[in-house]
């Protein structure tokens, strides 16, 4: 059935745009906006109304992106993750995406719950949570650059970049 990989690719793109789009929103827009909003006493608008909604779509888009990507790899899933059978380039993209998914669910979301008051935390725990969530988010921005390179050029355009 050719419909499954075709639909998986479509879903992978849509969910991936939502995931990475929100990641870039957090890092390129919200971090600086929150600093300015804290200074003029309007931070609650972001932390109460914007951030929880953005995080909801962010973390679930990450899951959908990964699942659609795994479906897209299909029978080549193991070859990609073991970097074999000519799948090393897309495999590196898949590994980077997987590490980023881990960062979302194991580091960013649990710490954001403390920061936003969804989970009770002391001021000291909140300060630590802010730093961990910030660095995990920034690490994901850094990883997204090679991840998108290998996603874009690692399989369908591998002839251009890797001469195969």
């Amino acid at each position: 059935m050719d419909y499954v990989p075709a639909l998986a690719r479509w879903l992978h793109f849509m969910a991936g745009i939502m995931w990475i789009g929100l990641l870039y929103y957090f890092n390129f827009v919200q971090v600086a906006a929150l600093k300015a909003a804290t200074a003029d006493g309007t931070a609650a608008g972001i932390t109460k109304h914007v951030a929880p909604r953005a995080l909801l779509f962010f973390r679930w888009a990450a899951v959908v992106t990964w699942l659609a990507g795994a479906t897209l790899l299909g029978g080549q899933f193991v070859n990609a993750f073991t970097l074999q059978g000519g799948m090393a380039a897309i495999g590196v993209g898949a590994w980077l995406g997987t590490i980023m998914l881990f960062n979302v669910w194991a580091l960013i979301w649990p710490n954001q719950k403390k920061i936003l008051g969804i989970k009770p935390a002391t001021d000291e725990e909140k300060t630590k949570a802010r730093r961990v969530a910030f660095l995990a988010s920034r690490a994901n921005v850094m990883l997204s650059i090679p991840m998108l390179f290998f996603m874009a050029g690692g399989l369908s355009h591998r002839g251009v970049f890797f001469g195969m």
């Binding site: 890092n27 000519g86 920034r138 650059i145």
Partner: peptide, 30 residues
């Protein structure tokens, strides 16, 4: 030393350097 991830430019440049490193590593494998 300052953490490059503390600035957006540091983050983007780190990502580009990582891309180059991984590109040549994968080129060796393929």
């Amino acid at each position: 030393m300052k953490n490059p991830l503390d600035s957006l430019w540091g983050t983007v440049i780190s990502g580009l350097i990582l891309t180059l490193i991984l590109y040549f590593a994968v080129k060796c494998i393929l």
